[in-house]
Simulated assay, not measured.
Amino acid sequence: MEAISRLGVVGCGLMGSGIAEVAALRGIEVLVAEATPDAVRAGRRRLTASLDRAVERGKITGAERDAARSRLAFTHDLGDMADRQFVIEAVAENPAVKTDVIRTLDKAVADPEAILATNTSSIPIVDLAVATRRPDRVVGLHFFNPVPVQRLVELIPALTTSTETLDRARHLATAQLGKEAILASDQSGFVVNALLIPYLLAAVRMLESGVAAADDIDRGMELGCAHPMGPLRLLDLIGLDTAQAVARSMYEEFKEPLYAAPALLRRMVAAGRLGRKSGRGFYDYAAPGVTA
């Protein structure tokens, strides 16, 4: 199968920058798009810092870092994606935003055989595919945070996705990016979040009802079930706004109470306490180890 040599990544937050970093380190030329020049500069700094940390920790050599940097280019114009063979959108977990990006990419990418992939963690792929003129070329490719560390990718074909598209996406994820892929049906939450989100929301409800303190809930799961990170610390890492968006999408599809965001989660998001990225969530990251 022909390898992808020109990859586009739309969005350079935690997920987009991680996807771009992994691809560049694996020898792929990557064009990263952000919405504004300021966002481009922030994304470039995030990628540069991550590559530098990888060198400091002995994960890669300085030469590998420099080679990866040379394969990265940046833009704030989606029209520059015209020559890409494969584009992955990794923008905010918002159906309207993702639909707009996918629709714009469909017009911008010149090759009708090029594939458009979404990194959504909960939105049905078919809803995005039918917004394009190439629904057979749209597929879900869901990475996990942090992308350079987590090995898993969920492959999600829509009803419209062709077998060729799915095969090319699998080849990119596994043979080229070195990930492990699992196949998931196109239903909100797919495999991992369908299991994970109810567990995380249950931990919030437990804290909300006063059953235990945040640190005790987390240590209970870490020490009692050998989880590498407790549920509330994991929510802080994911981002409380992202978790709420995923829960909302899943609740809208299934109408199951276990997918409904607890009041505490909704209020923390409204207050801007989003976890690590805002400096405060269930824990205060200005003073590590202190609960919020």
Rank of each mutant, 00 (worst) to 15 (best):
V130W: 09
L128A: 09
L7V: 11
I123S: 00
R137V: 06
A73F: 06
A3Y: 02
M206H: 06
K98S: 08
A68D: 06
R280F: 01
L235H: 08
L51M: 06
D38E: 14
D111C: 15
A203L: 09
E29A: 06
R41Q: 08
G279Q: 07
V9Y: 12
A24D: 07
R168E: 06
A184P: 03
G224E: 04
S249E: 13
I88K: 05
V153S: 03
N145I: 14
E93K: 13
V91F: 06
I197Y: 08
V55G: 03
Y251C: 14
F190V: 00
R219S: 03
G62V: 08
A287L: 13
T160K: 11
R168H: 05
A90Y: 02
T99M: 08
A292D: 12
I115Q: 11
D66M: 05
A245P: 05
I60Q: 07
S209I: 05
S17W: 06
G13N: 11
V147F: 12
E180W: 11
D241T: 01
L223N: 02
Q244V: 03
R103A: 11
V87Y: 01
D136K: 11
E56H: 13
E64G: 02
E21C: 12
M268K: 12
G16R: 13
A194M: 07
Q176Y: 12
D80C: 03
V139F: 09
D106Y: 09
H142E: 05
A292W: 10
M15I: 15
A194K: 12
E113V: 15
A158W: 04
A33W: 00
E252D: 15
E34L: 02
A35R: 09
E222R: 06
R170P: 00
T242A: 03
G16D: 14
A173S: 12
V91M: 04
L232S: 13
D66N: 09
L166R: 08
G11K: 06
G189L: 00
V147D: 10
I4F: 07
V97I: 15
V10D: 11
A203K: 07
G210L: 10
E256F: 05
A260T: 04
V32R: 00
T120S: 11
A263T: 14
R69A: 04
V147M: 12
V204W: 07
D111F: 15
D241W: 00
A54M: 14
A245D: 07
L159A: 08
E208Y: 09
V101W: 02
S70W: 01
R41C: 01
R69Y: 00
N145K: 13
R151S: 03
P262L: 12
L274W: 02
L31E: 00
T174V: 14
L166P: 03
R133V: 08
G27L: 05
P112N: 15
A114Q: 15
